[in-house]
Design a protein around this nucleic acid. Structure first.
Ligand SMILES: [Mn+2]
Ligand SMILES: [Mn+2]
Ligand SMILES: [Zn+2]
Ligand SMILES: [Zn+2]
Lengths: 132, 132
DNA sequence: CAACAGATTAGAATTATTCTAAACTGAGAT
DNA sequence: ATCTCAGTTTAGAATAATTCTAATCTGTTG
């Protein structure tokens, strides 16, 4: 109920009406992959008064505070992932649908070391799905 | 010299001036990762007369004919990869730079089977780089 | 409550990309 | 070589996701 407020406070984000609305949709549910538009539609469907710009602002704020992770899998739009632990994805290009793959299911061997002056920040694996 | 023409003919693409210009830039060189804009700039830098729409058209045509592969790694823009063999990438988000990782360097174990009705078309791994 | 930094907002702007519809051109047929 | 036409190119308009602007509002702190 007010755990959302705590999440926000712990991240030095003011618990405003809009951030709480979004927080409820994102963090009460199990893991979700949303886009700015899908979240905006979900908010409007529940009679919430919010602007699209705020949805974008909030998603970006949440990302900066590591409450969300950006997923770039499709050029059309950016996905935001409530699962911030390292993990991988199936992606259905036709349905535009992301499905988590638990990190510890998968073992990756032989990754070369990063070019000098660089380090590997994150390894993401995307298994693209097609019908049949 | 006319191997580009052959590549185009073999793909049932008319060897027009514009496609040959682009083919030379893409297929004579070693593996390249370009965006529509970067390729357009490269063409204009060499005094070539071509429109941006044609660059987009040609990149898409080349993709359909499997002469190029699309890489979605950054929400900003789409990359086109002259390396059409399955392989993986380093990506430097700060420099917007893709680096190939040979497929056979890397072994991936434990990939779950695709959801029913779906199959895995392609597995791509992206190792995001940061400074230091 | 007063004050103000931080947040929200509508709408304009930006950017990559796609679309449109008219002009052009490569290649096969005559 | 010329004719013909489907395929291609093109400029510019349109689209769509996202960002920006600058005015208004609100949560928090004193
Ligand atoms: Mn886009
Ligand atoms: Mn975009
Ligand atoms: Zn996920
Ligand atoms: Zn590559």
């Amino acid at each position: 109920m007010n755990s959302i407020k705590n999440i926000l406070r712990n991240s030095s984000l003011r618990p405003t009406k809009q951030r709480i609305m979004i927080g409820k949709l994102l963090f009460n549910d199990t893991n979700k992959h949303v886009t700015a538009e899908s979240l905006y539609r979900e908010l409007k469907a529940s009679e919430q008064k919010i602007s699209l710009a705020t949805v974008y602002n909030t998603l970006h704020d949440f990302c900066e505070k590591k409450l969300l992770k950006k997923v770039n899998v499709d050029a059309e739009k950016v996905y935001f992932d409530t699962n911030t632990n390292p993990h991988h994805h199936f992606y259905s290009d036709s349905e535009k649908l992301l499905i988590d793959i638990s990190k510890d299911k998968i073992k990756i061997h032989g990754l070369p070391k990063a070019p000098k002056g660089k380090k590997i920040k994150d390894v993401e694996l995307i298994a693209h799905l097609s019908d049949s």
